[in-house]
Every structure is written in structure tokens, then in C-alpha cells.
């Protein structure tokens, strides 16, 4: 059987809120090392990769590898019934067709069990090669969210450029143009307010803002976001999940025909 008890249940609620509008159905792959998920959006433009390591759980048991087929909208409905401070336990039998979510209130005076039907999903797993990215930028996740939202009101695509000076986001549309530059700033008080640029080569790529906007639904998971870019490769937008792993989004670039 599989059982995972998560003291900080709100993390799972946040993960679902971040991905439920991008991906419809997906397998949660459970193994003795944790829970992993990989899924594409329906247009095959973006890919989501989630890792929740066993060590981040208060209790974790997985007797054999299980692929739990889940409709994310339905799981989100269930998790919305958990309080933000609740402990969430996931349970599934090896041959079962349901998953149980148990919510425990912080002082243990309310215990709720929600059972959700699983589905059979033929998933296509993609091998993501290790890449030495030309530019890696870490910046406040709220700042990234703000920039992407602001640019979305002006254009449909954004050019993201990284030089040793910083990272720039540009767009254009019927009403005009916009260009935002965030400079490296490592001398701010709080580490989470820093913007850091690691660069091997300047890079500039074009992406659909609609997807970048969708990725920023993960902002609540981490105060910082890391953007990794290389010429003619998908951008990686990564939110680290404290003690547990990460939520990564890969977005295919737009290129000249």
C-alpha cells in the first residue's frame, strides 16, 4: 500500500492550485523515494514536473510502485475541503481504484476522510536531458508574477533576454510596447528579494505569455523562482518546495518559421 502524511498540508493544496488549469489528468507516480508527476498541457507546449521526496513527509510508505491516475480538477475540489493548517494524509491500496485524503485539524479535534475515484491514464514519459543552461536567473517569484501579468495586458508573447547586466522582459501589441529590466542585486537585506544572474552566454528567447502567466500560479510555493534558458531550448521555470523537492514548468519557445 501507499501512505504519505504531510504535516504542511497547504503545500499540496498550493501544488494543485498551480497545475490544475494547465493539466487535466495525470498519473501521480509513487515509489519508495517519493511522489513524482510529469505531464504536458493539452497543446503539448508546456510540461510540468513535480517531485515530492519521501523525506519531506512526516510518514511515508510505498510497498510497490504505483501510478495513481488523477483528474486534477477533482483532486483540487477535494483538497479545497482541507483547512490551510491541516495535516493531509494520502492513502491508496495496491490494487485499489480510489485514493483517500485524510485531513487532520492541527489540534486533532476534526478528522475528515475524502475518497476519490482514480482513473486509468496512459501517460507518455519524456526523458529530460541534463542541460548546462546558458543563463540561470533567480529572482523574487512575486516580481516575476507581476512582470508576466503586466506584460500580458499589452502583448501575447514576451522576449526574455539575459545578459550579465540582468534579465529583460519585452512585449509589444496593438497599443504599444513594454520593456522591463531586472538587474542583478545581491546586496539587498533579505535573500528572497535578491536577483542573481549566472551567465555563460547572453541568450534571448520568445515565449507565449499565456503559459508563463499560468506557471505563476505556483508563486505561493516559493519566495524565489529560477529561470533557466538556453538558445532554442525550452525555458525552465522552477519553484523549489522547501524540504520536499520542486515544481518545474518547461515551456517550448517560439521560433522563426
Amino acid at each position: 500500500m501507499f501512505e504519505g502524511r504531510l504535516l504542511q498540508g497547504s503545500l499540496l493544496k498550493k501544488v494543485l492550485e498551480a497545475i490544475k488549469d494547465l493539466v487535466t489528468d495525470t498519473n501521480f507516480d509513487c515509489s519508495e523515494t517519493g511522489i513524482a508527476l510529469q505531464a504536458m498541457d493539452s497543446s503539448h507546449v508546456a510540461l510540468v514536473s513535480l517531485l515530492l521526496k519521501d523525506t519531506g513527509f512526516d510518514h511515508f510508505r510505498c510497498d510497490r510502485n504505483l501510478a495513481l491516475g488523477i483528474n486534477l480538477q477533482n483532486m483540487s475540489k477535494m483538497l479545497k475541503c482541507a483547512g490551510n493548517d491541516d495535516i493531509i494524509t494520502l492513502k491508496a491500496e495496491d490494487e485499489g481504484d480510489t485514493i483517500t485524503f485524510m485531513f487532520e485539524s492541527p489540534n486533532q479535534d476534526k478528522i475528515s476522510d475524502f475518497e476519490m475515484k482514480l482513473m486509468d491514464i496512459d501517460s507518455e514519459h519524456l526523458g529530460i536531458p541534463d542541460t548546462d543552461y546558458q543563463a540561470i536567473v533567480t529572482m523574487p517569484s512575486a516580481e516575476f508574477q507581476r512582470i508576466v501579468r503586466d506584460l500580458s495586458s499589452i502583448g501575447d508573447t514576451a522576449v526574455i533576454g539575459v545578459t550579465k547586466e540582468g534579465i529583460s522582459f519585452s512585449t509589444g501589441g496593438d497599443i504599444g510596447k513594454a520593456n522591463i529590466v531586472c538587474r542583478q542585486n545581491t546586496n539587498v537585506d533579505k535573500e528572497e528579494d535578491q536577483t542573481t544572474v549566472e551567465i555563460h552566454e547572453p541568450v534571448s528567447l520568445t515565449f507565449a505569455l499565456r503559459y508563463l502567466n499560468s506557471f505563476t500560479k505556483a508563486t505561493a510555493l516559493s519566495p524565489q523562482v529560477t529561470l533557466s534558458l538556453s538558445k532554442e531550448l525550452p525555458i525552465v521555470v522552477e519553484y523549489k518546495i522547501e524540504k520536499m523537492g520542486f515544481l518545474r514548468f518547461y515551456l517550448a519557445p517560439k521560433i522563426e518559421e
Binding site: L47, H125, L126, G127, P129, Y250, A252, E256, E257
Partner: peptide, 14 residues
């Protein structure tokens, strides 16, 4: 004109 690429074209199907 810019063309949206497919994410699958960048990764290997396992």
C-alpha cells in the same frame, strides 16, 4: 513570423 514549437520535440520519449 514566429511559430510555437512542440515541447515533445525537445525531449526523448521514454
Amino acid at each position: 513570423a514566429l511559430k510555437q514549437t512542440n515541447i515533445k520535440s525537445f525531449f526523448v520519449t521514454k
